[in-house]
Design a protein around this nucleic acid. Structure first.
Lengths: 331, 331
DNA sequence: CTGAAAGCGCTTACAG
DNA sequence: CTGAAAGCGCTTACAG
């Protein structure tokens, strides 16, 4: 059931079988047909592992994602997978569960010649991990994140500007008391927070620490953050939630507290995941081109794998403010 | 940078290095320490591919899922991954995009010695695929699905009874005109439909074809199905939606049509995904033990991989009706 | 306890 | 166009 058996079966060498299998060299028609027939008849399937060993390629790429913003990352995964499929690559997803031990293990796993390249969407707070990434020869692309110390190509939006524009959007609607549900643990969260502050400054509104509540990019954390925020501040006009999943939780919290969105409170999300279109009310959100991020990251990684051409160090994709029904004018 | 280099570095044989690496045989303390030091110093990482080739194990299992009920499958994935992690296995997710070509390709990929076992959650309508599955030596476990022709171990709930009990729940609340948003393409959908019919029969309520609408297990399809159903029947008391993701879409549709849930209409979901707790109103749903399904399927697969002990052919896990706020008594 | 050597199933210069 | 043979980086009987 190996290539050898097919060779014996056809009275040819293993080299010939390998050649018709891969089409790497011309094989005469009669031999080719004989080999193909034998393969078909005996149901032979090439051993991919053996092939990987000699080629030193696994045709698998690793996608490292955090265990938050699941729907966002799921969409990226889908688009990465679709993009790479045509080139015969598969995707091994590593969802980092806890930041301490787990991510180190994943990296080790990935680097044991298991993957040809990595798309990294998880930010670590462990310097060892980055040190290891720097050392490896495996091509890496960062998607949706920014890690200042690392020189890998990045594909993302301009989070600072996006949050600034989102905040401006609320300000233009006439809102003055803007709550913010931020996210901790990721640099994009810090950038978005800065964008929020910047827009407030433009409108001469002082930043009020009590309007800020941290979240963890999950539905549940958005739920909790919204409750805490509304408990502390009964006079908010609007809340900007820095991820749609948290916004879903925030909507739920508002509902539980008998506050109407947008009647009592406007709510602005961030990400543009599919679900944000189906909430009640439909979310207005700062929408990232999620599929494009995955597609572009995959394309760049593919380019690094297959050519020596230089790739763009930073690809900034456009965001939009997609209007739903969760924000209302407050003139 | 191979095992040979470490061996040379330490003046020992590659066999010894391999032994300290794997702990397969006792190696004297001094040699062991020398080898470990060298490994650490030179940053040697074993080549997993080479190891796989000789062991004929990849320590990877394939998880084949459809491209619907994403949140449900994501939860299963998480629990499968957690369960297998302790045993050193990784999970390769294959999300079947289109039923025709794609699934065949995935199977081929998986069977090229890429995975040691498969957890199958996707039902195919292509007999070739099943024929191929039957032939393979790779252990397979079915999770959440039932494929009558195949003799693989199954882990799931009793979908017929679950839907029957769900329907009974609505009937007990006093509802008489029960819409059903069913799902096509999966046998669980058919079973659940039968459960619905059975419960109606128990209450001497004739089955009305016009109360039935098909869906495709996505939010969008639930949205469309609900709109179609409500357009046709203005007098429904309640709607039973055979997946929570469709129920999210159905909620959105009801909202758009200015129908209050549960004021005008009770809504019952199916699955018990995390999101169902955060909808407005919170969904009442027939809740599957999703994580347990993944965990149990993984455990059984592991048992097949590591022992020759027989495994249970059918593991039925308990479901519950988890009450939220989307159903109301209609006495 | 340790080492020399065979072998896992492929690919691919090299020679013909 | 085809074949004999080396080699990919490991593991593991087998012998000592």
């Amino acid at each position: 059931m190996g290539i050898k058996d097919i060779a014996k079966d056809c009275g040819v060498s293993v080299a010939t079988v390998s050649r018709v299998l891969n089409g790497t060299k011309f094989v005469s028609k009669p031999l080719q047909e004989k080999v193909l027939a034998s393969i078909e008849r005996r149901g032979y399937v090439p051993d991919h592992i053996a092939r990987s060993m000699v080629l030193k390629k696994t045709f698998t790429i690793g996608l490292i994602i955090p265990n938050v913003s699941d729907m966002y990352h799921q969409m990226v995964f889908s688009s990465v997978e679709s993009t790479l499929e045509a080139s015969g690559y598969k995707v091994l997803v590593c969802r980092v569960q806890d930041t301490l031990r787990n991510e180190r293990i994943y990296l080790d796993l990935l680097l044991q010649n298991r993957v040809d390249g990595i798309i990294l969407m998880h930010e670590s707070n462990n310097p060892d991990v980055y040190a290891q990434l720097k050392k490896t020869q495996v091509p890496i692309v960062l998607a949706g994140i920014d890690i200042p110390g690392l020189q890998f190509p990045q594909v993302r939006i301009d989070d600072f500007s996006a949050a600034k524009d989102g905040t401006r959007y609320l300000l233009k609607l006439g809102h003055k008391r803007l709550g913010l549900i931020a996210g901790s643990g990721y640099s994009v969260g810090d950038k978005r927070l800065e964008g929020y502050k910047k827009a407030l400054a433009e409108y001469d509104i002082p930043f009020d620490e009590s309007f800020l509540e941290g979240g963890g990019y999950t539905i549940e954390s958005g739920f909790q953050a919204m409750k805490a925020l509304l408990k502390r501040n009964t006079s908010l006009d609007a809340v900007f939630v820095l991820s749609d999943e948290m916004a879903v939780g925030a909507l739920s919290a508002a509902f539980e507290l008998h506050l109407s969105v947008p009647g009592d409170l406007s709510l602005l999300g961030f990400d543009g995941i599919t679900l944000s279109t189906y909430t009640t009310p439909m979310l207005t959100t700062v929408s990232q081109p999620i599929s494009e991020i995955g597609q572009k990251a995959a394309t760049i990684l593919l380019q690094m794998l297959q050519t020596d051409d230089p790739v763009p160090k930073l690809t900034l994709l456009p965001y939009t403010i997609r209007e739903g029904r969760s924000c209302i004018s407050h003139q």
